[in-house]
Every structure is written in C-alpha cells, then in structure tokens.
Deep mutational scan, measured.
Amino acid sequence: MSIQHFRVALIPFFAAFCLPVFAHPETLVKVKDAEDQLGARVGYIELDLNSGKILESFRPEERFPMMSTFKVLLCGAVLSRVDAGQEQLGRRIHYSQNDLVKYSPVTEKHLTDGMTVRELCSAAITMSDNTAANLLLTTIGGPKELTAFLHNMGDHVTRLDRWEPELNEAIPNDERDTTMPAAMATTLRKLLTGELLTLASRQQLIDWMEADKVAGPLLRSALPAGWFIADKSGASERGSRGIIAALGPDGKPSRIVVIYTTGSQATMDERNRQIAEIGASLIKHW
C-alpha cells in the first residue's frame, strides 16, 4: 500500500482517536478583511474532515458561482459510474476541433488520438481543461445529471445548469451553476471519506486533486513544508474566484476548506493574494 493509499484508508480510523479540534476566530477576521479589500462577498467554511463538524464559517449558506470547482464533483460522478460498472477509466473518447472550447490546454493536443476517461478527469482537475469537462459531462448525461447525482448524495443546493464556458457567467442573483460553501464542503467530504465511492475511487479523486497544477498562487502558496493539500480552484466573470481543498499537517488531510468570492473589481492577482492570506491565517491558527 502506497503512502497515498495509506492516508485515505486511515481517514475513518483516525476519527475515533483524534484530539479535539478548536476553532480560531482570527481567520474570520481575515475573511472579513478580504471582503473589505476586494469590495466583494466572500464565503468561507472550515470543516473537520473526520467528524464533519463546522469549525468556522462566514456566509456559509449564501450562493456563489461554482466556477471550475464543479470539476471535482463531476469526476466524482464519473467515478461513481465506474464503480457501478457503467463506465471505464480506460475508455478512449474521440472528439473533433468543433468540440474544443476556450481554455483547453490538454485536449487541444489530442485531437488525433483522443483521450481516456482517466486522462480527461486528470486534465479537468489538474489543468482545469474546459473541453475535458464538457466531454465528461456528456458521458454522464449533461449538467442536469450532475445535479441529480448531487441530489442523490443529499446535496439539494449545488446545481450545474450549463456547459463550459457559459457556466462562468456569474450573474448576480442567478442561481444557475452555483453552490453554497456549507453544501460544497459537505459534499466534498462525502466524496473523499464516505461510502458513495469505493476506496480506490476515493483515492483516485484525491490523487487528481493533489496533482492540481493551476492553484499555486492560492492556499498552496501559504503551505508550510510537510503539509498535505488536494485542491481545485476556479475563476469566472465578475471578479469571481474560489477554491475547495482538503489539507492538513503531517502529510495527511484533516480539514476541508472552501473559499468563494464574487462581485469584485480587483485584479486576479489581488483576488489570489487575499485567498492566500486567508490560508496563511488558517495555518497560523491551526
């Protein structure tokens, strides 16, 4: 058993032996400061991975655009179909130039040979490839079927209504393609630790998130040596930015963190910096 498999397999085991986890309101002070700095709403939640207890939250039940963070949920739905014998990670999917949409750094290189379902999930999560996400959405029946999958998990909040890139429109008060921090954190925890997916599929999902290559300026920039993080970021119109993550010290995840912001006029660099500073406060007061 690899170190990674050891880590995921023991998450339920550690729940019975973990020390009490204490919240630190200092992080919420930073979240509120980020709102002031960005001139935008910020949603935040910090969840204990083992118990599911909410440690801190700010606007946990307000809607925010999901942006590309939905791609983790999408690959969770794909893995659920794999577990049920309805899909194979090794199945190759062929597509054409007409299928390519904006920001497809991986799929645009494989027009001649296509990509496997496994490769598409990797591209969608680690590189946020939009065509990969659309191709995967097609395999499960489209955005409405992803919403149905989430409903069956008990998440009646999170919804996907459109495809890439239209889902990134982020119109104020538009509930399409949105979630709430509390709903996203709970759903992510179920995917990573619950019985919905097999152990192998849970491991695969967290491996893809751990290999994320496009979230460096966010929480990863504040991470001390030896800490673990598996994450997925997102960005969209109207100053929207977000990240969902499982992270913790000693090389294993122990908390879920979800951060969303929307409605800012700030630059992408400034949005990144504010999220990184929230992460730094979280780690300092861990």
Rank of each mutant, 00 (worst) to 15 (best):
A215G: 09
I243S: 00
E270D: 09
F228R: 02
A225E: 15
T147S: 08
P165W: 02
V214E: 04
D48E: 12
W227F: 04
D83G: 03
A211E: 12
A245G: 05
R81Q: 10
K53S: 12
M66T: 03
L282A: 05
T179S: 06
L146V: 07
Q88H: 14
N50G: 15
G114C: 09
N168E: 05
V8K: 15
R238W: 12
N152S: 14
R238A: 14
P165E: 04
T178K: 01
T193Q: 15
V21R: 01
F6S: 09
A40K: 01
G90N: 14
N168I: 05
I244D: 00
G90S: 13
E175H: 11
G194S: 13
L73F: 06
A280D: 12
N50I: 14
R92Y: 09
K53T: 13
A222N: 12
T198H: 09
D177E: 01
K213L: 11
R176G: 05
Q88G: 09
R92C: 07
V106A: 08
E237W: 07
R176N: 06
A183T: 09
D177N: 03
V8D: 12
E169D: 12
A133D: 01
R202Q: 11
G43C: 01
S264T: 15
L188R: 00
G242F: 00
S240Y: 07
R255A: 01
V8L: 15
L282M: 15
K30T: 09
L10H: 06
L137I: 08
A215I: 01
G226V: 01
G248A: 01
F22C: 13
L73M: 08
D269I: 09
A183I: 07
D212N: 11
L89S: 04
I244A: 03
S240P: 03
A225C: 11
Q86N: 15
E164Q: 01
T262D: 10
F64V: 03
W163V: 08
R162H: 08
K109R: 12
E87Q: 06
K144Q: 14
I244N: 00
S201I: 06
G90V: 10
S254C: 09
A225P: 15
G216D: 11
I244F: 01
I3D: 08
K144G: 14
I243L: 09
L188A: 04
L79F: 01
E210T: 09
L73S: 06
E237R: 09
D99H: 11
M153T: 11
A16S: 15
I3L: 15
I243W: 03
E145Q: 14
G52S: 04
R271G: 09
E270V: 13
M268N: 06
L73Y: 03
W163Q: 07
S80R: 12
P65I: 02
A183V: 09
R59Q: 05
A222S: 13
T107G: 02
L188F: 12
L120V: 02
H110Q: 07
P65N: 05
H110Y: 10
D33A: 14
L218A: 03
Y103S: 07
D269A: 12
A9L: 11
E119K: 05
R202L: 03
S96A: 14
T178F: 01
E169V: 09
L10R: 02
Q203E: 10
V78A: 04
K284E: 13
R91A: 04
N98T: 14
T178A: 02
R159C: 03
Q97H: 12
D269N: 11
P253V: 05
I259N: 00
K252W: 07
M127K: 07
P65W: 01
L19Q: 15
L49S: 04
P172V: 10
R7L: 14
R118S: 15
A266T: 12
M115V: 04
S57Q: 14
E56S: 08
W227L: 00
G39R: 12
I93V: 13
S264V: 04
L197T: 02
L111T: 11
P12H: 13
R238S: 15
F22V: 07
T107L: 06
L135C: 04
R118K: 07
